[in-house]
């Protein structure tokens, strides 16, 4: 999406750090900014997931706007 000119932010749980870093390197973007959040998220209910997302919002905005 970034290559297509669409600013994007990637969120990934921390169990997948090596996978995310590896994929970024594979695509020639070793320093690609990725937001990591505590694993797991699949057992969170709707409110807990919203709370988690709100906690990451500032980081998402920072990556999207580059500021």
């Amino acid at each position: 999406m970034e290559k297509a000119g669409l600013p994007s932010a990637t969120i990934c749980t921390d169990r997948f750090i090596p996978t995310a870093r590896g994929m970024a390197k594979m695509w020639g973007a070793e320093d690609y900014p990725t937001i990591f959040t505590e694993h797991p998220i699949e057992n969170l209910d709707r409110d807990q997931l919203r709370q988690r997302a709100e906690g990451l919002a500032t980081e998402v905005v920072t990556i999207l706007t580059g500021s």
Binding site: F16, P18, G22, M26
Partner: peptide, 10 residues
Amino acid sequence: CAAIPGLYDR
């Protein structure tokens, strides 16, 4: 195909 256990094969 890089389906490496623990890295890209999760």
